[in-house]
C-alpha cells in the first residue's frame, strides 16, 4: 500500500506502519516523535486532500 501511494506521488515519509503493544509506551513515543519530525520536514500535504470550499 505504501509502495502504491509512493508510486502515485505521495511522499514516502508521510506513510508509516508500526506494530506497538499497549505495554510499549516508550516505543510509541519514539515512533510518534519520528513520524512528526518527518512529516514536519515535508510540510503540509496538498495531495489527496479534499477541498470542501
Amino acid at each position: 500500500m505504501g509502495n502504491l501511494l509512493e508510486h502515485m506521488g505521495i511522499e514516502r515519509d508521510r506513510i508509516h506502519f508500526s506494530w506497538i503493544s499497549s505495554a510499549e509506551a516508550t516505543k510509541f513515543v519514539d515512533v510518534v516523535k519520528e513520524i512528526s519530525n518527518k512529516v514536519r520536514a515535508l510540510g503540509p500535504n496538498k495531495k489527496l486532500v479534499k477541498d470542501y470550499n
Partner: peptide, 17 residues
Amino acid sequence: DVEKIAALEADARWIHF
C-alpha cells in the same frame, strides 16, 4: 510502463495520475 512512471519525481508522478 511502471518503470517509466517510477523514474519521475514525486510531483510529476502525482500529476501523471
